[in-house]
Design a binder for these strands. Sequence first.
DNA 1: AATATATATCGCAAATATACGATTAATAAT
DNA 2: ATTATTAATCGTATATTTGCGATATATATT
Lengths: 111, 111
Amino acid sequence: MAYSKKSEFESDEIKASEIAKALSHPARVAIIKFLVKQKSCICNDLVAHLPLSQSTVSQHLKELKTAGLITGEIDGPRVCYCIDKENWKKAKEIFGELFNMKFEAMKNKCC
Amino acid sequence: MAYSKKSEFESDEIKASEIAKALSHPARVAIIKFLVKQKSCICNDLVAHLPLSQSTVSQHLKELKTAGLITGEIDGPRVCYCIDKENWKKAKEIFGELFNMKFEAMKNKCC
DNA sequence: AATATATATCGCAAATATACGATTAATAAT
DNA sequence: ATTATTAATCGTATATTTGCGATATATATT
């Protein structure tokens, strides 16, 4: 693979794929669910809840943060992670657009 | 990485992550959009539409097919790809559940 | 039968993701 | 001040993904 071609696509396609990528590992889906359900915001509680080591959970958190889906605020010696509600809403809209696209009239007979 | 831990998560988390994974590359989002908009079902037209080689497009199509989001029917010397409407609907529901989760009352002050 | 067209698969190289233990850094408690 | 706790980062091994050209396969056309 000489170089990635991702940038050659339309920006809405790139944006949707980035959110999808952030959610493409069950650990990250589990983290989002945990935070929405507010079982706790504390990183350590997430580590306890997931079948992964602390360093691995930290990496997954970083990815979700980079994608903008969560925020992380230092709270004493802990870090409190929260859903970024603004971006979460945007993500919902982006996926809504994708999944609510209307099927256009067929130009081929096969489907 | 000794082994993958993906199977240790809940089945709904795994399912959501699998759909997300299928949509985690802009080419695959573009393919879905193209098929929903029915610009064509023919593989060759997809290749012409995307900035990728024929073999690479074929691989992306295979991934979408494996994820169940599209079907591929042989039509003479061509293959006609279509959205699997049943599974597309299911995918929409799975993402709907994720994005429509209600935020529970806070147990921490930070968010 | 020979040729052209369309698509899948193989083989490979490079990039990225997954996972962990060890280490570091920063705060809290003693 | 020392120690304990929490979380990020580093280093590393392995797995997976991305991408392409070459090749194989299968149908259509001549």
